[in-house]
């Protein structure tokens, strides 16, 4: 900034601050030093700006506990686990269910028609009988698969519906969230053996490469999701011992809320809380706020 432009307070302050911050080039620095050398008031302003900047060192710096790190990693683990099966995880809409039911119905009608014709016309010869058996078996398989698929879709949609009862009861303390996460991880650990066998080799390798904490969280999430897809609407099968342990470790307020209910309802409440924890951490990424920005954010 040339000297002639240093004629307003704001312009001079800017140059002084930039000088203090070491942001001036050699020429501008030399010029401001000349001004400072001949201007006592300016030197005073510089000293004041410098002094007030130094007292900012008194501001507190934060440090976080190990719990914070773990919770952060858990959140990221959940995000990571969502990335791989994203395409498969999406629940079908009602229209999909209707089409699936219609397709299943048509298949069933086709099979019924085929059976009727076969029964009334009787077998013409052994060759036809063999072919018929083969086709019947194939159709039967297809019908069975279609029925199973419809069942899966219906269960998935049912699972998507909001639950009645205590679904709105929300957890408020980090302690409760941590206790429930620890428990679901332990629960998943006890049931992970069979579940992991069903995973493809590539997924198992991916899990094996994760840090211990992250792996536990991902498995917990998978086991939880698997339970709910197979048992829609049912609370997690929490043993009496686990229920007592959870009550002991949860916050006083949450414990009081739990103990006002029957054990069955307590299990339902805990299941809903775990559902809330997982779902809250599944919120979709909002769209980018504005286009452009630094190079890494541009498409």
């Amino acid at each position: 900034m040339p000297d002639e432009l240093l004629n307003t307070d704001a312009a001079i302050e800017q140059q002084i601050v930039a000088y203090l911050d070491g942001e001036l080039d050699a020429e501008s620095g030399r010029r401001i030093e000349q001004r400072l050398a001949g201007d006592r008031q300016l030197r005073k302003r510089l000293q004041q700006l410098d002094r007030t900047w130094e007292v900012l060192d008194m501001l507190d710096t934060s440090s976080v506990s190990e719990d914070f790190t773990q919770t952060t990693m858990e959140m990221v683990a959940v995000a990571a686990s969502d990335e791989v099966p994203k395409g498969r995880r999406r629940l079908p809409g009602r229209r999909t269910v209707h089409w699936a039911i219609i397709a299943g119905g048509l298949l069933a009608a086709g099979l019924a028609g085929f059976l009727t014709v076969t029964m009334f016309l009787g077998d013409q010869n052994g060759r036809v009988e063999k072919e018929t058996d083969s086709e019947l078996a194939q159709l039967s398989n297809e019908l069975s698969e279609a029925t199973e698929r419809i069942g899966q879709i219906e269960r998935a949609v049912q699972d998507k519906k909001p639950r009645a009862g205590n679904a709105k009861a929300k957890l408020t303390t980090r302690q409760d969230v941590d206790v429930l996460l620890r428990w679901i991880e332990q629960y998943a650990g006890r049931h992970a053996g069979e579940f992991l066998k069903l995973l493809p080799e590539s997924r198992r390798e991916q899990l094996a490469q994760m840090p211990e904490q992250m792996r536990r969280m991902v498995i917990a999430r998978m086991v939880w999701r698997d339970w709910h897809s197979k048992n829609p609407g049912k609370p997690l099968p929490i043993s009496d011992e686990d229920l007592a342990e959870l009550r002991r470790r949860l916050s006083d307020k949450t414990r009081e809320r739990l103990e006002a209910n029957s054990p069955k309802e307590q299990r339902r409440m805990i299941s809903n809380w775990i559902r809330q924890i997982f779902r809250r951490r599944m919120r979709p990424e909002p769209p980018p706020r504005r286009p452009g920005g630094p190079p890494w954010r541009r498409p």
């Binding site: 934060s62 976080v64 914070f68 790190t69 990221v76 490469q209 840090p211």
Partner: peptide
């Protein structure tokens, strides 16, 4: 690399919270 991410979190979490808290 998940372990690298954990390292990154540990390295920057205090600095990030300090700035955000203020």
């Amino acid at each position: 690399d998940a372990a690298a991410f954990e390292q990154l979190v540990r390295r920057y979490q205090d600095r990030l919270i300090t700035v955000l808290e203020h």
